[in-house]
């Protein structure tokens, strides 16, 4: 049996289109961190973030037939992840459920505690929570995921100038909150 770790993304997609779930397993292994940066960056370190992360890969699996090689897997997954995260935030707002810090603390149990830099991560997540949904989305896409400003604008369906103005406002807020939290 072939070693899936040696296959490129195109070959993995080919196998997934044949219904091979083990190929999806390899895609999850390769891209989980990328999806985590979007989802946890947007939703914080909560159980919902884990659910949205899972749902991202499930949607990818279910929409395999619609997937073409025009977009990279990472871009396709990021689009799904950002849309699902925004939907989740809206759902929270509709339900008027504010994630209290206590709940967020409880949610942290789903994350591997042994990872390094946990302290700094918590500070960054706390600072990100202080941004509004739109600012958080541009920060996650442009600064955390590392997409270009144009790619960020395309993915979020907003003008390039809006990305820059939201980013500069977000940076001002983050600068203050990270300073308060002693993270910079």
């Amino acid at each position: 049996m072939e070693d899936l770790r040696t296959l490129d993304d195109g070959a993995l997609v080919g196998l997934m289109k044949q219904g091979r779930q083990d190929a999806l397993g390899e895609v999850v292994r390769r891209y989980r961190q990328q999806v985590a940066r979007v989802v946890i960056g947007m939703l914080g370190n909560t159980p919902e973030a884990d659910d949205v992360g899972q749902e991202t890969f499930i949607r990818f699996w279910n929409n395999m037939d619609a997937y073409t090689h025009d977009a990279r897997i990472s871009t396709f997954l990021t689009r799904i992840a950002i849309n699902l995260s925004i939907n989740e935030i809206r759902k929270r707002k509709r339900k008027q459920e504010w994630v209290s810090s206590a709940k967020a603390e409880a949610g942290r149990q789903v994350i591997d505690d042994t990872m390094s830099g946990q302290y700094e991560r918590e500070h960054i997540e706390a600072a990100l929570r202080m941004l509004d949904e739109q600012q958080r989305a541009v920060v996650v896409m442009r600064l955390i995921q590392g997409y270009s400003t144009k790619e960020t604008a395309d993915m979020l369906n907003i003008p390039l100038g809006t990305v820059l103005s939201r980013l500069s406002r977000a940076l001002d807020k983050l600068r203050l909150s990270l300073k308060q939290l002693d993270a910079i």
Binding site: I40, G53, V110, I111, G117, E125
Partner: peptide
């Protein structure tokens, strides 16, 4: 600081 942010899902 943001570029060093590397969260991950649980094991």
């Amino acid at each position: 600081t943001l570029r060093s942010y590397q969260p991950d899902f649980g094991s």
